[in-house]
Design a protein around this nucleic acid. Structure first.
Length: 562
DNA sequence: TGCAAGTTGTAGAT
DNA sequence: ATCTACAACTTGCA
């Protein structure tokens, strides 16, 4: 029923002043979240402006792309993606200009027209961004407008335009999957991916800095301040970029022969302990998340390939929320929430987030540090964190286990702190999904059954009785007998000696007693929930901050018509 | 107001 | 493998 959406279906190009429409007029295409040429609304819009010159630019912002803010795995993936994009652009007669610095500082000089008039700026709106990023975008847009350019903001990171979804839900974002599925039912399927051409692009023949300080090429990791160890240590096993991403998409769709695997995929049934096979290619999930994060693969392309080539061909297939389509819908729901809920990325003043008195001070810092370093003394948790630091990737259920452990399960550390660690280390960290999932796992929002708690011993045992995953990621435990692999402190001293792993010497003592800690924390959660109920839920409690927070999308608690 | 359902818990019984 | 108790959360809808 859904035809391919042609680029010209979109809003008509605005009329522009005759002065700007001179033959040398250029269009700056500021690439951000969508590092691809297929299904790129921003690129197609830029082409419809028919500029004499098209200047695709990406800005490496030190606030994001530096060792303090971004793990080596993600930085490496990002640079690979940029290099791939540059090659693809060059094949079509263009090139990528890669600048370094703050966009609001390095982009405005382009508007002044180094070597010609810049008539248009096109970029993709980041609806679910944190406040500072939204301000950054406004500053850049203002600078271009002040220079006489037109600014065009497109939507491309999500399946639907978040504004449209919000409007169709009377201005209030759904906060549960059943409610979101109903909304999606009303709205209809997402737009088809754009049919991007493969033809020649307008030239990108500007003069990038005659001072020679800024060559405009994609830098290497070391140029961004990453040490030489970063290359070896920070390695996601799959290459970044649109080319590799589309290959991986095809491989996922073909998997199992006749798309059986993708059709029957149910997320809760996948295995978080799976260790890489000899072919080093298959994990129990698609591992497409980093490609979606950086827009190397369009969510809409993924959605429709699944629909047309996997689901349509079979009488029976998995359904949302557990199916692969379901995974895209979770992503969509959380982006919509991040767009519409005020103070979404923090506990305070966040109307959907339970106010929980998480631990603070030196003890909390120590626990957080041990957790991040993979030194909690719980082999399953430490193995997960070691994989996270090394690869930048963890299976979704492994993320659950470590997030529950850090927050409501064992260590009682704030979800915001764990979220920040994930944001730095994960190759696929997308702020909206990251904050949402941390709220979920800490029982701060979306999920409230705090008496369901992951055990760092029982949970991995269900999948991996012999602890192959732990042995892979915690070498000290390599020789520990199966019976003690998840609880080495219970092994008799002689067994520990024989395994070359004495607890307290070669491997840490457990940081807490899981049974005691989880019991105590459940009582704390109950108290926090009771306090929430006691204060009028809509009016908030205590400080009275939540209800006065300026809404970004729509006022919280406003359920009526706009 | 009551009731059903909620992507992904555990421990112990059978 | 499938069941139940655990102690009982929330949202969303009738």
């Amino acid at each position: 029923p859904c035809r391919p959406r042609a680029a010209c279906d979109m809003a008509p190009a605005p009329a522009r002043s005759s002065a700007a429409a001179s033959s040398s007029a250029a269009c700056v295409l500021w690439l951000r979240q969508s590092l691809r040429l297929h299904d790129s609304p921003a690129l197609e819009r830029a082409l419809r402006l028919a500029p004499a010159r098209l200047l695709p630019v990406f800005v490496l912002d030190p606030r994001q792309a530096s060792p303090e803010a971004m793990g080596a795995a993600r930085a490496g993936f990002l640079l690979e993606s940029l290099r791939d994009l540059d090659s693809s652009l060059k094949r079509r007669g263009s090139r990528l200009l890669c600048l370094r610095g703050r966009p609001e500082e390095v982009l405005p000089p382009l508007a002044q027209g180094r070597g010609g008039t810049v008539a248009d700026l096109v970029f993709e709106g980041d609806h679910s961004a944190e406040r500072w990023a939204r301000q950054r975008d406004e500053e850049v847009a203002r600078a271009f407008r002040d220079s006489g350019a037109q600014v065009h903001v497109e939507t491309g990171h999500t399946l639907w335009d978040p504004e449209l979804l919000l409007a169709k839900n009377r201005g209030a974002p759904p906060t549960s999957m059943p409610a979101f599925l109903k909304l999606v039912e009303r709205v209809g399927p997402p737009p088809r991916p754009l049919e991007g051409g493969s033809g020649h692009l307008p030239p990108s023949d500007w003069a990038p800095g005659s001072d020679g300080a800024e060559p405009g090429g994609v830098p290497a990791l070391k140029d961004l301040g990453y040490g030489p160890a970063a290359d070896a240590l920070g390695a996601f096993p799959f290459k970044g970029g649109e080319t590799a991403g589309l290959d991986r998409l095809e491989a996922s769709l073909r998997r199992g022969g006749g798309a059986v695997w993708a059709a029957d995929f149910e997320k809760p049934k996948t295995d978080p302990t799976q260790v890489e096979g000899p072919r080093f290619a298959e994990r129990s999930t698609t591992a497409l998340s980093p490609y979606l994060r950086f827009g190397c693969v369009s969510a809409r392309t993924f959605y429709w390939r699944l629909q047309d080539d996997v689901y349509a061909a079979r009488s029976k297939h998995a359904l949302p929320p557990v199916s692969l389509h379901g995974q895209l819908l979770w992503r969509e729901l959380f982006h919509l929430n991040a767009f519409a809920v005020p103070n979404f990325h923090q506990m305070e003043g966040n109307p959907i987030c339970r106010q929980v008195p998480w631990a603070e001070g030196a003890e909390a810092d120590k626990r957080l540090a041990a957790w991040e370093a993979g030194a909690t003394g719980f082999p399953w948790i430490d193995a997960c964190m070691n994989q996270l630091r090394a690869e930048g990737w963890l299976h979704h259920l492994a993320r659950h286990a470590v997030a529950c452990f850090l927050t409501r399960g064992d260590l009682w550390v704030s979800w915001e702190q764990g979220r920040d660690v994930f944001d730095r280390l994960l190759v696929d960290s997308d702020p909206a999904l990251n904050s949402a999932n941390w709220m979920w796992l800490s029982c701060s929002s979306y999920f409230y059954q705090y008496f369901r708690c992951y055990s760092p011993i029982a949970f991995p045992k269900k999948y991996d009785k012999r602890g192959a995953y732990v042995r892979r990621w915690v070498p000290a435990l390599k020789e520990m007998p199966d019976a003690y692999i998840y609880e080495p402190w219970k092994a008799p001293k002689a067994v520990q000696e024989r395994a070359g792993c004495v607890v307290g010497r070669d491997y840490p003592e457990p940081i807490v007693d899981h049974r005691e800690a989880s019991q105590e924390n459940m009582a704390r959660m109950k108290a926090a929930y009771d306090a929430h109920k006691a204060g009028a839920p809509l009016a908030g409690k205590g400080k009275g901050k939540g209800q006065t927070a300026a809404p970004q999308g729509v006022p919280a608690g406003k359920r009526g018509k706009a």
